[in-house]
Deep mutational scan, measured.
Amino acid sequence: TTLTVNTQTYTFTSEEEAREFARRYGAKTIRKTNGTWEVHG
């Protein structure tokens, strides 16, 4: 199964959650914005 996250942004309140998600789905960018963490595919 392949998950494609081209134009979607996922927002997390903790860096740990964001990094775990990025690691699991191979997202390329993690960015902190206004106190939340954004993961970009």
Rank of each mutant, 00 (worst) to 15 (best):
A18L: 01
G26F: 03
R24I: 11
R24F: 05
H40R: 10
S14V: 04
Y25V: 15
E15V: 04
T4I: 13
V39W: 01
T7Q: 11
T33K: 12
E20I: 06
E15I: 06
T7H: 11
T1C: 14
F21S: 01
A22G: 03
N34F: 02
A27T: 06
A22T: 01
T4S: 10
R19Q: 08
H40T: 15
A27I: 12
S14H: 04
Q8E: 09
T29Y: 14
R23G: 06
T36F: 13
W37P: 01
Y10A: 05
N34T: 02
T9E: 05
E20Q: 06
G35M: 03
T13G: 09
T4N: 14
I30Q: 03
R31P: 05
T29W: 12
Y10H: 10
N34E: 06
T1Q: 12
T29F: 14
Q8K: 10
A27Q: 07
T1H: 12
W37T: 01
T2W: 08
T1F: 08
T33F: 09
G35F: 02
G35N: 07
T13L: 13
E16W: 10
T1Y: 06
Y25E: 05
I30P: 03
S14M: 03
Y10V: 08
K28V: 15
G26I: 01
T4A: 14
I30V: 10
G35P: 00
R24M: 09
F12N: 00
R19P: 00
K28L: 12
H40F: 13
Y25T: 15
T36P: 01
F21L: 01
E15S: 02
A27W: 15
T2P: 12
Q8V: 13
E16H: 09
T36E: 08
T9N: 07
V39K: 00
F12Y: 01
E17S: 05
E17G: 03
T1K: 05
A18D: 00
A18F: 01
A27S: 07
Y10R: 06
V5E: 13
T11I: 14
R19M: 11
S14A: 03
E17T: 04
R19H: 07
E38Q: 07
A22R: 01
F12C: 07
A18W: 01
T1P: 13
V39F: 01
K28I: 14
A18M: 02
Y25N: 10
G26D: 05
T4Y: 08
T29Q: 06
F12R: 00
E15F: 13
N6F: 10
T2Y: 06
S14P: 00
F12L: 00
N6T: 12
K28M: 13
A22N: 01
T1I: 10
L3D: 13
A18E: 00
A22S: 03
K28A: 11
T9C: 13
T13P: 06
G26E: 04
T33G: 10
T9V: 15
R31W: 07
T7P: 10
R19V: 10
T33H: 12
R24E: 07
E38P: 01
I30K: 03
E38H: 05
E16P: 04
T7C: 12
N34Q: 04
T4H: 12
T36W: 07
N6S: 11
G41F: 15
A27N: 05
G41Q: 10
T4Q: 11
T9I: 15
K28E: 13
N34Y: 02
S14I: 04
W37S: 00
A27L: 15
H40K: 11
T33W: 08
N34G: 06
G41L: 15
V39M: 01
T29S: 10
E38I: 12
K32R: 07
G35E: 05
F21G: 01
T2F: 06
Q8S: 10
R23F: 07
W37A: 00
T11C: 12
G26L: 03
V39N: 01
S14T: 10
T13R: 08
I30D: 02
T13D: 11
A27D: 04
E17F: 02
T36A: 09
T11F: 13
T33A: 15
T2H: 14
E15M: 05
H40P: 04
T7W: 11
S14E: 05
R19E: 10
R23I: 08
S14N: 11
T7D: 08
T29C: 14
K32M: 11
E17I: 03
L3M: 12
F21A: 04
K28T: 15
F21M: 03
T33R: 09
T11A: 06
E20Y: 04
E16G: 05
A18H: 00
T7L: 12
S14W: 02
S14Q: 03
T29P: 10
T7A: 09
T1G: 14
T1R: 01
A18K: 00
N34I: 02
T29K: 06
L3T: 15
T4W: 07
T29I: 15
R31V: 12
T29A: 15
G41R: 07
Y25D: 02
H40E: 13
Q8R: 06
G26S: 05
N6V: 13
R19C: 13
E15G: 02
R24P: 02
I30T: 06
R31K: 13
E17P: 00
A22P: 00
T7M: 10
H40S: 13
T33V: 15
N6W: 11
T4K: 09
A27Y: 15
R23W: 06
E15R: 04
H40L: 14
V39E: 00
Y10F: 10
R23P: 00
K32Q: 11
T36R: 10
A27P: 02
R23D: 11
T11E: 05
T11K: 08
E20K: 07
A27G: 15
T9Q: 05
T1W: 06
Y10Q: 04
T13I: 08
T11S: 09
Q8D: 08
R19W: 09
